[in-house]
Design a protein around this nucleic acid. Structure first.
Lengths: 148, 148
DNA sequence: TGGTTGCTGCGAATCATTCGCAGCAACGGG
DNA sequence: CCCGTTGCTGCGAATGATTCGCAGCAACCA
């Protein structure tokens, strides 16, 4: 695994527990996971683990920099391991599909926000909403935003 | 006001009601508002209006294109009138402030997503998370992302 | 090995949002 | 201008997600 996860926790004054290891492993193997999904994954190994613990553990793991979360639409947040490739979620508001694209497409955008506003963007935290290619194609007859 | 709001509703088969007018006016005057905040604003004029109605009305107003919503962090969504300048929210995860910047800074980013992935971005729906300029300045001694 | 105290499981509390239902009211027809 | 149809609203309960409080267990330092 991340191999340094134990030290990460210790350095921040947290204890090493099986629950924390399991949650981290679950996040890594799921690649994308809501707290609920992570719970299910964790319970494959340790059925006694509680949802509250998942929430508290994710908070801790995020604080020490082992996982991050992103908001995809209205639902619960999605957690990722930090050692994954950084990517951006494209959420189709029409059909609900989520597509991941490399964060590099936003390099210039991020640079502009930093340069123009001094804002340091955590680009992976963002979900970009809109309409995916297939919905866009399937849609060119209706919905013309009826001009007044 | 938007002046065409009545027709907008009618064209989509909805009725014109005082509640819908009040909610729309509240969104316009607040510029940014959660359902809860909109309720409070509406109740300044009509105290009998219910939160459920706010939710239902916002849904309707959004469907006919009079308002939009954006997700700012974990909390409830924020609603805007569509005739406002389109802007992007920069949310500081450190101090919680939300800064609005013109959507034009994302023009190129949006173009790349459309060109490279066929994805039509609703840029105003996005909230960009990160750290604002002042928090960034105030922060250069601690938190160095301690490398392994 | 033992004590200190952080972590966990559990159930209740909270917050946001949605539903079901009965009564009221918008609006098209006469 | 009045009436009936049916959408809209207020209200309270239901739901879903997340957080809290607390007592017992276990990680970790001496």
């Amino acid at each position: 695994m991340t191999e340094g996860w134990e030290r990460r926790l210790r350095e921040h004054g947290f204890r090493i527990t099986p629950q924390r290891q399991l949650v981290l492993e679950a996040v890594e193997s799921l690649r994308h996971g809501t707290p609920e999904e992570i719970l299910v994954e964790v319970q494959l190994t340790a059925s006694g683990v509680n949802l509250s613990t998942i929430y508290r553990t994710l908070e801790v793991l995020e604080e020490v920099g082992l996982v991050t979360h992103a908001h995809i639409g209205h639902g619960p947040p999605t957690y990722h391991a930090v050692d994954e490739d950084i990517h951006i979620h494209l959420v189709c508001d029409r059909c609900g599909t989520v597509q991941s694209v490399p964060a590099t497409v936003a390099t210039e955008f991020v640079a502009q926000l930093e340069g123009g506003y001094g804002f340091r963007t955590d680009i992976a935290h963002v979900s970009v909403h809109g309409m995916c290619a297939s919905c866009k194609d399937r849609d060119f007859e209706s919905e013309a935003d009826d001009p007044l």
